[in-house]
Simulated assay, not measured.
Amino acid sequence: MTTPTFVYDGDCSFCTTCAEFIETRIPTHARVVPWQFADLDALGLTTEQCEEAVQWVGTDGATAAGPDAIALMLRDAGRAWQLAGSALQIGPVRLAAWPAYRWIAEHRHMLPGGTAACSLPQAQRDALYGTGA
């Protein structure tokens, strides 16, 4: 793989809003793609992994999830973003980032841009809306 990939939940409005922020404001080299439209097999990811957290797949095929994925995406963006990404990987910050990430993931339907569908697992969204990969 020649380009890193940052994978998010395209069925979640909050996640999509965050991805749009990345695409317009953070100069990462990564391809930013909803998991529902990604070739997960080629990326070495599972639906379950993508439902649980955002994912980063590096050019070497190495993967990271949640705040670790966000840190790698920021580090890829260079300059000031690289500093933020590096800070996110510092031990105590990283330890605090995971509970914060999980809280946000569990409450994303209540955050700006979130919808009720954001709170449902993919299987339930498929049953209700007839969507999915």
Rank of each mutant, 00 (worst) to 15 (best):
A133C: 13
W35E: 06
E48P: 07
G113E: 04
E23Y: 01
T47V: 15
T24I: 02
A30F: 00
G114C: 08
V93C: 06
W98S: 10
E52P: 04
R102L: 08
C12W: 00
W81N: 13
Q122K: 14
W35Y: 07
F37T: 14
S119L: 06
T115I: 09
A19W: 00
V33S: 11
V57K: 12
T115K: 12
C50L: 06
A123G: 09
W56L: 11
A133K: 15
M1D: 09
L74M: 15
Q36C: 11
D76L: 02
A65I: 04
D60P: 05
M73T: 09
P99C: 04
P34C: 10
P121S: 03
P27L: 08
T115P: 04
G78Y: 03
L95S: 13
Q89I: 09
I104E: 10
D68G: 09
E48T: 15
W103V: 13
S86Q: 14
D41H: 15
L72D: 05
T46R: 02
V54Y: 01
G66I: 05
I22V: 06
T47G: 11
A77H: 07
W98I: 08
G58C: 03
I22H: 00
P99V: 02
I90K: 12
G10Y: 00
E106C: 11
E106A: 15
E23V: 07
S119E: 02
A116R: 12
S86V: 13
V7M: 11
Y129D: 14
G85T: 13
D11T: 09
E48R: 15
P67Y: 00
C50M: 05
R125I: 09
R75L: 14
L74V: 13
A53D: 08
